[in-house]
Structures are given as C-alpha cells and as structure tokens.
Design a binder for these strands. Structure first.
Ligand SMILES: [Zn+2]
Ligand SMILES: [Zn+2]
Length: 650
DNA sequence: CATCAAGGCCAG
DNA sequence: CTGGCCTTGATG
C-alpha cells in the first residue's frame, strides 16, 4: 500500500470532495468541512437553503450554501458524538482506504463501507458512537409531513407549496458560476468543474446506489420538518443530536443570499431551463420547508395576550370609505393629492429650457436599442442628440414595452394583487385582522414568530424580484456581471417601489406567509425608526402620483439601471438602458397623466435619489441580520410599559 | 514514542 | 466566516 507516498491517504472529503485530511467527526473530510461542521454545531445554526435544498457541494462552491453543506455533513454521517480521541485501529483504516479505492468502481457492496460508517452488523464497538447507527436508519423520512395549516403564500395558488417528496427529476443546484465571488475564499480555481463527475464520485461511497449523474441529495433525516421539535422519531434513537437540527433560517434579505440568487438567475439566463426549474423550486421545496420552522407548536394559533381594542392604524384606515369601489388598479386607496406632484424646486435651475435639454437625452426608440449591443455607443449618443423631436419612443412601442414588463412582473403582480385584495377586505372590515396585528406590545415569542415569518417571506420576494429583472427587455443583454451588480444594488428599491401601493394611510399591508400584515408597527421591531419612516415617506410620495402598474415597474427599472451604480463594467450600456426606460416612463406618463405628466415625471425624478441612502441603511441592517437566527442585537420588544427595548427579552 | 483527531488560532 | 496549521491529549 502506498503509505507515505500518497499525499492524502484519506481520499476525498466525503462532503465536498476536496482532499480529506483525516477522519473528523467520524468521516473523512477536509479541514474546511471539519471546521465548518464544528462551527455549525454549537450555535445550533439554522441554515436555510435558498436554492431548493439540493445544492451540489464541491470545493468551489461549498461556501455558497451553508444549509446544503451542513446537510451533507450530516448525511455522510458526521456527528459530534463521534468525537474520538486517539488513534484509530489500523485495521479500520485499512478497510477504509480499500473501500475508498473501490469508489471508482462504484460497486459499493455494502461490506465495503468506509470505516466511518460501520454497518450495524460490524458494530465496531468503540470507534463510532451509536448515534451513527440510529442516524443511518433515519434515511428516507418523508419529506414534509404536516403542512402549515393555514399558511397561504402571498401569491397565487400556482405557487402554493406542494408537498411530497422532492421529485427526483429536479436537478440539483450547482452554483457553478464565476462572476461575483461572493466569498473571499472563492479562489480563482477555474478547474473545469464537472458537476456530474463530482456528484457521482461523491456518492460513490455511499451505500446508496450510484445514481444518474447529478444526483441530488438523497432524502435525509434532516429533511423531515425541521420544526418538528425534538421528540418525534428522530429523538428516540439518540441521533447525532446534541444539535437541534432544525435546518434553516438564516439571512433574510441577506446580501449574500441575494447575491447568490442573482447569480443563479443570471447563469441560468444562459441555460434557460435549469433556471425555470430552480425558480420553481423556490416554491415547491423551499417555502414549505420554511413554514415549519421552530415555534411550530404555537405557530398558527397566536392569541394576543392582550386583546387590544384600539388599533390606531387600522382605525385610521377604516375611515377611507371610497375603498370598496375601484377595486382595480394600483391607485385604489389613494390619498387625495396632498401636494401637487409638482416639484418645489428643481435641483438645477428649472427652466423650460432645462427640461428640454433633459428630454432630449431621452430620445431613443427601440430601433436604437437594437443597435446598442452593436458597435459604437457614442454614435447612439450623437444620434439621438441630433433629433429634436421630444421623444422617439412612440406610443405603440411604449405600450409594447410596457406589456413585456407587465409580463415579466407577472409573479410580482400576482403577489401584489392578492395583498391588495386582502388590504381591501381588511380595511373594509370584511376581514378580521390577523391576531399578530392586534398586538400592541409584542412579547418575545411573538417577535420571534414574526421574525421567522419574515425569513420565510424571503424566497417569495426573491422570486418576484428576480423574475421581474429577468424579464426586462435588454437587461439580459447586459454583461452578466453588471446585471448582478445592478440587481444587488436595486433589490431593495425594487421591492419597496413595487410594494408602494401597500403602504397606505401610514401603515403597511404587505403580508407575511401567515397572512399577518408586516405592519408599520412590526417593522419597528426589526428596523430602525429612521428607515421605517423613510420607507413610508417614499411610498407615500409614489402613491400620490397615481401611477399605473406599468409605470411603477418602469420606475423600478430606472432605478435598476441607474448608471451611478459603482463597479459596472460597461457604464455606457447601462446608461443607455437607463435612458430608454426614462423615455418609457415619460411616454407612459404622457398617456396616463395627460395634463400634468411632465410634472409627475419630474417629481419622480426628484424622488428617486432618496432611495440611495435608504438602500444603504437597509443594507447595513441586513448585514446584521446575517448573524444566524433571531438577531438579538437588532430585535426589539416592548416591555410592560409599552416602550421599545433593545435586546434581552423578558 | 508515534499517531491521530479535536480544538484553538488567526491571517485572509 | 473560512480553512490551513499548530497544539493538546488520548491511545496503542
Ligand atoms: Zn470538504
Ligand atoms: Zn442549498
């Protein structure tokens, strides 16, 4: 046997296929996975996969999804109980090596199991803790049993989570991207990455029969509803549990996550189908899983400890009587024009001439667009500067573009529609407010509940935002890296702008998965007052403009393609796109606001800049959220006196 | 004493 | 947070 000669006698890391450095926690793994597993335990981290729960874990992307990495750690048998000091009997080692060598032949006859996973029969008395055995027996648990009783996603039924085992046909997510190193540890390793190879290799040593190439993770003990508090089946056998293995739950709008999602979308933009699959997974796999996260026992039956009669916000809103009527568009429930959509002052001397100049820059039409990706962009500049008509984007083209945008935002709009409907019902009294919205002084468990709800809402939100971006004409033609940068930067802006219509009368009617409103009051539990105020300020301004859905989307895109974003490879192209959509908005407003469109346009233009700082604040907060689970440092709760208190619950 | 794994350490 | 490397301690 090649003893010292072999650099890595332990073969590949069973988790990520990197070089194993020894047997750690019962399994031959690399240093990285060893450390990762160690770190994951104590904090009982609740990771959450945002990609469908079947990410391929390899040395290149292992840091992209903690959930799946950890899941994999467990599935290959790592256990904290396996902690063993001292040396391993030579015999076992030999066997392990042999087994590993045979990996290639994949003919993993049950006996050849690596030492780390002794067969029950061979009960290697001491080496491994009993937990292994019990763990193994937990393979193949039904994936999601109980459904969240009353949860309904903020979107159409089509997205209703479907339960059942994960369809094997679904491809695992393989993060194989390259732009955007989300992680500092992302080395430049451009080694050809053959997912199939890795996958099959990785699984070769399992006692599961080798599968068709990209083999998704097999059902694990883990995949059973995380919420199911210790207790159920898993408990009895003393699983490797000192860990409360509820998977999931990290970062919400975490920049990292968003970044990853964006990557995903962009990548798949070049491989359409995979993308569809993945996105679909957001709903089928991810959401349902989330819905059953800790707190599950009391989850849906929250009874407000204090039945509060007076609910300020609601009351106020109820006074709006005209609600019932125009159940239709976005501008339902609108406050009367408090202020004319006329900008007080233009930042630059506001003269008609000034406006002319500005508008000239908007002159573009779709024909020009086609040229964009072509040769000289400077020419385009010159070209439209030469024109003197106000706008080249004629009505028909504008309508066409708008249609496309509405299509792109289908999902988002569905979500919004549903929420608007609920808003109307609730405002009109036809619908009882969710118990969580009748609370004025939230207790710890309630705050945690809402926190989890917030987390759970992320995938839906991601789906909507990313779906929209993907469908934006011309946007996909941008350099993928730029797309990523832009989307990342504008994520919050888009979310807020799209949801603006749900900010009414000083409160918010956005919905969490349990259908509770993510009300202004609740926002105060998770966000600094300033941020909340700014959000309301901005949305109120947007609302008074009485914009159509198409216009709202266009504004989102204008923000998305804001050429001021930094780190863009091709500012010129982005800028041109920006121009196009400015032109579109102009035209749209012209059609819907015949008389004052110019004023509205300028008003909006003045409004957008405020998103910058808001976005920044938001980003900082989110950064804190990154910390696993409920952010003590960020959360607040109310004490008996009704005051907000930071940290430390009662 | 030689080995080996858990943990600690800390630069990146 | 990651993961390569080093120290600690157990084990044969
Ligand atoms: Zn590994
Ligand atoms: Zn994952």
């Amino acid at each position: 046997m090649p003893m010292g000669a072999t650099p890595f006698p332990f073969g590949d890391c069973r988790v990520c296929t990197d070089k194993a450095t020894g047997v750690h926690y019962g399994v031959a793994t690399c240093e990285g996975c060893k450390g990762f597993f160690k770190r994951s335990i104590p904090k009982a981290e609740r990771y959450q996969c945002f990609f469908g729960g079947r990410c391929i874990v390899n040395p290149q992307n292992r840091n992209r999804c903690k959930a799946c990495r950890f899941q994999r750690c467990v599935s290959v048998g790592m256990s904290i109980d396996a902690v063993k000091m001292g040396r391993i009997p030579k015999v076992n080692k030999e066997r392990a090596l042999a087994a590993h060598r045979h990996d290639d032949n994949a003919s993993s006859s049950s006996d050849e199991r690596p030492f780390a996973l002794p067969t029950p029969s061979s009960s290697s008395s001491s080496v491994l803790p009993s937990s292994f055995l019990s763990q193994m027996s937990h393979h193949n648990l039904p994936m999601m049993e109980a459904q969240h009783p009353r949860s309904s996603l903020p979107s159409s039924q089509s997205k209703q989570f479907s339960s059942g085992p994960i369809p094997n046909s679904v491809a695992p997510f393989d993060h194989s991207d390259n732009f955007l190193c989300a992680n500092t540890h992302d080395n430049n390793s451009s080694e050809a990455f053959v997912s199939g190879d890795h996958a099959s290799h990785a699984w070769a040593s399992e006692d599961t029969p080798p599968q068709q190439v990209p083999r998704p993770c097999p059902p694990q003990a883990w995949q059973k509803p995380p919420g199911a508090p210790q207790g159920s089946s898993e408990q009895g056998a003393s699983p490797c549990s000192s860990v409360a293995y509820s998977p999931l739950g990290v970062s919400p709008y975490s920049p990292t996550v968003i970044k990853e999602l964006i990557n995903q979308v962009i990548e798949s933009g070049q491989g359409q189908e995979l993308q569809q699959t993945l996105i679909r997974q957001f709903f089928k796999d991810e959401i349902p899983l989330n819905l059953k996260r800790k707190l599950s026992p009391e989850e849906d039956s929250y009874e407000p400890p204090v039945k509060q009669e007076v609910i300020p916000f609601k009351q106020e809103v109820s006074q709006a009587t005209d609600l019932q009527d125009d159940l239709f568009l976005f501008d339902l429930i609108n406050t009367p024009f408090k202020e004319p959509p006329v900008p007080q002052q233009q930042q630059h001397p506001s003269s008609p001439l000034q406006e002319e100049g500005f508008l000239q820059q908007l002159q573009l039409d779709l024909h020009d667009l086609d040229q964009y990706l072509g040769p000289s962009s400077n020419d385009v500049d010159a070209r439209y500067l030469q024109r003197h008509s106000r706008l080249s984007l004629d009505t028909d083209k504008a309508k066409l573009l708008t249609t496309k945008l509405l299509t792109a935002a289908t999902s988002f709009i569905e979500t919004l529609s549903r929420n608007r409907l609920l808003m109307r019902e609730e405002v009109s009294g036809a619908r009882e407010p969710h118990p969580m919205n009748t609370i004025t002084h939230a207790r710890k468990h309630q705050v945690l509940f809402m926190w989890n709800q917030l987390m759970d809402s992320i995938p839906v939100c991601n789906f909507d935002v990313l779906g929209l971006c993907r469908g934006i004409p011309m946007f996909n033609d941008l350099n993928p890296k730029d797309q990523a940068v832009l989307m990342e930067e504008a994520y919050f802006d888009i979310w807020l702008t799209m949801n603006a219509g749900l900010f009414q009368k000083g409160d918010s009617y956005m919905r969490l998965p349990c259908d509770a409103r993510y009300s202004r009051l609740w926002m105060h539990y998770f966000l600094p007052e300033k941020v909340v105020d700014e959000m309301f300020y901005y949305t109120e301004k947007i609302n008074i403009c009485h914009l159509t859905q198409g216009e709202i989307i266009t504004i989102c895109i204008i923000q998305l393609t804001n050429p001021e974003h930094r780190g863009i490879t091709d500012p010129g192209q982005v800028s041109q796109l920006h121009q196009v959509y400015l032109g579109l908005l102009w035209r749209q407003l012209q059609l819907s606001h015949q008389t004052d469109y110019s004023q509205v346009f300028n008003f909006i233009m003045q409004l957008l800049p405020m998103l910058g700082p808001l976005n920044k604040m938001q980003a900082e907060i989110v950064a804190k959220f990154q910390v696993d689970s409920p952010p003590d440092g960020v959360l607040r709760y109310t004490n008996e006196d009704g005051d907000f208190v930071n940290k430390e619950f009662d």
